[in-house]
Amino acid sequence: MKPARFAYHAPATAAEAVALLAEHGPGTRLLAGGQTLMPLLASRTVRPPRIVDLNRVPELAFVTRDGSRLRIGALTRLRHVENDPAVRAALPLLAEVTALAGPVQVRHRATVGGALAYADPAAEYPAVAVALDARIEVRGDEIRQVDAAEFFLGAHRTALGATELLAAVEFPVPSAPAAYAIERIAPRATGPALAGAVVVLGPATGRIVLFGVTPTPVRPAAAEAALARGAAPDEVAEAAVEGLDPPDTPTIRGVSRRALARGAVARAVATARDKVTHA
C-alpha cells in the first residue's frame, strides 16, 4: 500500500501555493496534515499527478484574537487549537470538539483547514463551524470570505474552487460565554461518528447543528424554534429529526441513524441547559 508517483512542491508562501494551483490546475492536491489524504494516496484511491504541500507555509499557522473575532490559520494543528489559551477562553466548545477529532498522534498533525476542507459528513468540525457562525477565508486570485453555512455543499464538496485554498477560519466571539454541548455517537473512541449534534445556547436564541446524518451539517429550524421556546429536550430532538431520512449503509440503516441523531440532540440540549443552570 504505497502512493503512486506524484510531483511534489513545497511552497514557502500562500501566494506561491495559489500560484502553483493556478499553474497546474485541477488534479493538483493540497497536502496539509495529511491524516485523510495520505491513506487515500497509499491505497491509490486518489492519485493526483501533483501535490502542493502547505506544511512549509508558516503564514498559514496562527491563532489570533482581535476583539470580538478569533482567527485561526488553516495550517494550525488541531492539537494546538485544543490547547491554545485564546481558543479555550473565547470558544471552549471549539477546544472541546477539537479534542474529539481522533487520537493525539492524528491531532498533532491534522489541521483546521483540512478538517473543514475535507467536508466529511461524519466529522464534528464542519458542524461546529456552522454552529459558531464561522467565516471561512478562501484564497485564490483574490481573497473572499464564505460563511460556513454556505461553504459545505455536499459530502466532501465545498465552495472551494480548484485553484483556491482555505487560508483561515474566523469565529465571532460571543460577548457573554454561551452554553454549549456536543454529542458524538460512536461505538468506539476512534473512527467516524454514526451521528452527532452540537447545541449552542445564546442569551436569546439557540443553535442546533446535526452531523453524520446528512451530506452537510444541517440546522433544523423547527427544533431551534422549539429550543428557543424552552421545549423539553425530547420534543426539541423530535423536531430536529422531523423529515430526516438518512440512507441505509452497510453498517447502519437510515432509520437507526435517525434515532441516534435524535438521541444526540436530546442529550446535547439537556447538557447545554444544565451548563446554563450551573453557570
Binding site: P39, D53, Q105, T190
Partner: peptide, 27 residues
C-alpha cells in the same frame, strides 16, 4: 495498517508524536 489507524508506526517529530506512515520523508 499504513492507514493511520493502528499506531504501530508512531514516532516523535520535533517533540510530538506523529504517525510516520502518514508523513512523507521529505516533510
Amino acid at each position: 495498517c499504513e492507514q493511520g489507524v493502528c499506531g504501530a508506526c508512531t514516532v516523535s517529530m520535533d517533540g510530538v508524536t506523529v504517525l510516520s506512515c502518514l508523513l512523507l520523508a521529505v516533510q
